[in-house]
């Protein structure tokens, strides 16, 4: 993995968030005019329970360097248990990704409530810093671009 020119490297990060807590929390960050890094693009889901693990992989395949997954704190889920289901899914998913050698440090899980505008800003900044440190996820991008590069001249 190349860590060269990290100063010029702007991580591309996709945030998968639930509508009721984290999306609203990020709204509050805005309303509070708390500034944070521009690297994150937010995708709104009704609930963390809705977030398919394949969408996370799709983000990496499409060139994301990092991912944020965030929803309601335990017991605060708008749908009572979507976040609990999601939490289990992520536990299992993380363990599988780790077995495969996929860099689980690049997926940041968090609970951010609708009241935690500042936490959202911190989460984004912290994740951007982590990913900047790790560098672009070239390993994965290279594999994603296999047909374009590697196999073309076979």
């Amino acid at each position: 993995m190349s860590n060269d020119n990290n100063s010029a490297f702007e991580p591309r990060i996709i945030a998968f968030v639930c509508n009721w807590c984290t999306y609203a929390g990020a709204d509050l960050t805005g309303t509070s005019r708390i500034k944070y890094a521009t690297n994150v693009r937010i995708v709104r889901f009704p609930c963390t329970g809705r977030i398919d693990f394949l969408l996370l992989l799709k983000a990496f395949a499409s060139g994301a360097d990092g991912i944020i997954v965030s929803g309601c704190h335990p017991n605060d889920c708008h749908y009572t248990s979507g976040n609990f289901h999601a939490r289990r899914r992520w536990m299992v998913f993380r363990s599988l990704l780790d077995t495969l050698g996929i860099d689980t440090r690049r997926i940041r899980y968090s609970w951010v409530s609708a009241a935690e505008g500042a936490k959202w800003a911190d989460l984004v900044n912290d994740t951007v810093a982590t990913i900047r440190e790790l560098g672009p996820y070239n390993e994965y991008k290279k594999v994603a671009d296999y047909l374009g590069k590697e196999a073309g001249d076979e």
């Binding site: 335990p74 609990f84 289901h85 939490r87 289990r88 536990m91 993380r94 968090s110 609970w111």
Partner: peptide, 16 residues
């Protein structure tokens, strides 16, 4: 199923 059920006390040390 493991993924269609949950326990409120499931581990979450990876969630920060």
């Amino acid at each position: 199923n493991v993924l269609s059920t949950f326990k409120p006390g499931d581990k979450e040390d990876f969630i920060r």
